[in-house]
Amino acid sequence: MKAAVILFPGMNCENETMRALTVSGFHIELVRWNQHVNLDDFSCFVIPGGFSYEDRIRAGVIAAKHPLLDEIKKQSKKGKPVIGICNGAQVLVESGLVPGFSSSAQMGLAPNKNPEVNGYYSTWVKIRPAQQKKNAFNRLFTENDVIDIPVAHGEGRFATKEDNEKIKNLIAFQYCDYHRAIDQSFPTNPNGSLLNIAGITNEAGNVLAIMPHPERASFDKQTQAYGFIPKGLLFFKSMKEYIKEEL
């Protein structure tokens, strides 16, 4: 099972992302924005975090207009999973792939609203799988899971002009407190995100834009200093299960 890690200039989380994918059982290939590669060869696509094109104009928007995203859109229509992490999430949202109601951006990742820190904010947060049908990324999580996971971004506040009811059904992961409660205030919600959205899918459930970094919460060495259990690999292993079962 082959996963493509898509790299645009300025992204910087590809190494830890590839490590997490390898341990999850994928063969991986780094696909740079300027390479000509047949995407039919891959079972899934991962767009990692970083600062593509130095966040010029808005985070993720330049990469979102790159022809490679059109190719990834075509692959996603075949049901193949696509996950965008942090800057990758910003790319997917700006490209319209998530939530995917039309070809233009139906959501945005606005600057954080945080009463303590202005701009870039980096910390550990808790998220939980939302009460949503199974998608390509949540199938190995249980209803009672609380996932300790890092965030590191300046523009991570999911915002939309769409009807919230339409969006609600697509929420995959939400910021929560220790007891899994959805508290909209800081610090449970670290950026003021609408409906505490940490990750949201398209309607088919095979494309996920997630702001926290699962690849940074995948191994004991990443979490043990904080006393957390690493659950990040479950995102990637879920993707593998989905590919086995659905494609």
Partner: peptide, 10 residues
């Protein structure tokens, strides 16, 4: 409308 602004927060 296509590039410089995102109507969802701008």
């Amino acid at each position: 409308t296509l590039l410089l602004y995102n109507p969802n927060f701008q």
